[in-house]
Amino acid sequence: MATKPRQYKEGSFFEIFRYKDLLVQLVKRDIKLKYRRSFLGYVWSILNPLLIMIIMAIVFSFLFKREIALFPIYLLAGRSVFELANTAVSKALGAITDNTSLLKKTYVSKFMFPLSKITSTTVDFIFSMGALIIVMLVFSIIEGRLLFSFWNFGIIIVVVEAYIFSMGLGFLMAQLHVFFRDIRYVYNAFSTMLMYCSAIFYDVGMFYDKAKDQINAGVTPFALYLAHFVEYCNPVYIYIKQFRYFIWVPTLETVPQWAVVTPVDFLLGFGYAILMLAIGVFFFKRSQDKFILYI
């Protein structure tokens, strides 16, 4: 007989530890099926962000008057983090409804399905860092100096924060999707809004400059409120800012004020992540027994 594993309360979030081997299997499946028997599978996961980065870099360097140093690195860093959270959540969203047949036939901790999607997206994200390495290599050659530094490893902290945050939002959306199938459209609109609020192709310094003008002109400094909103109320921007601090900032000769990360940013980043996880787990747990009636 197998030794009995430690008992976790049925339906509790911590049951995921009992199913940790299942998590490994599910993540392996997702990764394998994506890359199996196709070398291009990996090439695509690098090529896709690279191509989008090139297009955006060309378009926005014409559109904006402001110069952001090493703009392609700035852009790619920001977009990767946003895409990590966005892809993770939108995959987790359908995780329960995609496993209908399984949930109708066996008992499994339902947390496992969104969790595995978020984990495999995070692993994918680490793979796709190849694109960033290529861009940094190219610019190292162009600039004639090495743009890599020891600081780069700091992104691990950001990945952890984004992982926890996506988990929370993923659980919340996955359980909503069981009851309201059109929540996906609401989420898509929300994520587009979030993208424009995350300073991916512009910089927050722009708002502060505008605010200065507004104050000088004696009008209400709306730009300042906007900057504060993005900087303190948008967790995704907080993660982007930190990510750039470890990737993009070390390559700069003069560091702009708005790019500097303080301990407050980490506190906020982890705070939002844990709060989101608590909210997600709370609602998921509350409604999970009703899933079977709606799938």
Partner: peptide, 18 residues
């Protein structure tokens, strides 16, 4: 997935360890 991979996946779904 292959039969081998399915044995592991299915076993884990039933709650067994690898």
């Amino acid at each position: 997935l292959t039969a081998r991979e399915n044995i592991y996946l299915n076993g884990c779904i039933l709650g067994y360890t690898k």
